[in-house]
């Protein structure tokens, strides 16, 4: 089976601050993601996982190796990225934000409004469709970010620590929301996080990266049954075992 994303022997270097020479962010990374799979990348902060994700999105050039994305439906956009923090446009209402990707794709007004409203209902913000982001909490803003990404209907979603800035409780709720959205849309997700808990809750597979330069140290197949619910998972014995295995690999890298 052809993988959806094929990252082969990728090295990414970029010029550091003046005088600091080159920074090697990622070195010799091989990673394959299958269609419909939810893969989480965990690693210590600064290990180059965000750089790798940006490279898949085409926002960062690769120094060595190849990244190949296989398209299966040319009518859908290939990738969309959900950013750290929500990065919703403060000057647009919730509806206009969610509608954004549909508008740039040139979808007719009536159709795209209906589509945007559908996703707004999915993230339970229908009462706030006309609100501006400054009127919403951080969690609600990130829900707008999720709705915007899912409404765009890409084949692959690239998520860069989207819930990193939220408090623990809001995080749990948004993780459930994300799982629901993913199940209805069936897209492929590559998700970057530094939280092992988050990776285990969401992913089919957790890929562990080392400290800079980022290399892949190993991976953990998550055998927890779906549909999952963030809080209940914690009491599953498999959860604790998997957590322990990942932590034993990561511990050395976190200083």
């Amino acid at each position: 089976m052809i993988p959806k994303i094929a990252i082969e022997a990728v090295t990414i270097r970029y010029a550091g601050r003046a005088g600091a020479g080159e920074v090697v962010a990622v070195e010799g990374v091989d990673l394959r993601v299958q269609e419909g799979e939810f893969v989480c990348l965990v690693g210590p902060s600064g290990c180059g996982k965000t750089t790798l994700l940006r490279a898949v999105a085409g926002l960062q050039p690769v120094s060595k190796g190849t990244i190949q994305v296989t398209r299966s439906d040319p009518s859908r956009p290939a990738t969309a990225m959900v950013f750290q923090g929500a990065a919703v446009f403060p000057w647009m209402t919730v509806l206009e934000n969610v509608d954004y990707g549909l508008r740039t794709r040139g979808m007719p007004y009536a159709e795209r409004t209906a589509e945007a409203q559908r996703w707004i209902r999915q993230v339970k913000l229908e009462r706030f469709a006309e609100a501006y982001p400054h009127q919403l909490s951080g969690g609600m803003q990130q829900r707008v970010g999720l709705a915007r990404a899912f409404a765009y209907n890409p084949e692959i979603l690239l998520m860069d620590e989207p819930f990193g800035a939220l408090d623990a409780q809001t995080r749990l709720i948004l993780q459930d929301t994300l799982l629901e959205l993913w199940q209805t849309s069936g897209c492929t997700i590559l998700f970057v996080t530094h939280s092992i808990d988050e990776a285990l809750t969401l992913g089919d597979r957790v890929v562990i990266m080392s400290a800079r330069p980022g290399r892949i140290m190993g991976e953990e197949r998550v055998s927890l049954a779906r549909p999952r619910e963030a809080v209940q998972l914690r009491s599953d014995p498999h959860y604790g075992e998997a957590f322990g295995r990942i932590w034993s690999q990561l511990r050395e890298e976190v200083r």
Binding site: A57, L59, P77, T79, A80, M81, F83, G85, A87, F89, Y100, G101, T104, R105, R148, Y152
Partner: peptide, 13 residues
């Protein structure tokens, strides 16, 4: 610059 990246990411001209 994030806002420009978002626009680029969503294929804005």
């Amino acid at each position: 610059s994030r806002y420009f990246e978002v626009a680029q990411n969503y294929g804005a001209s």
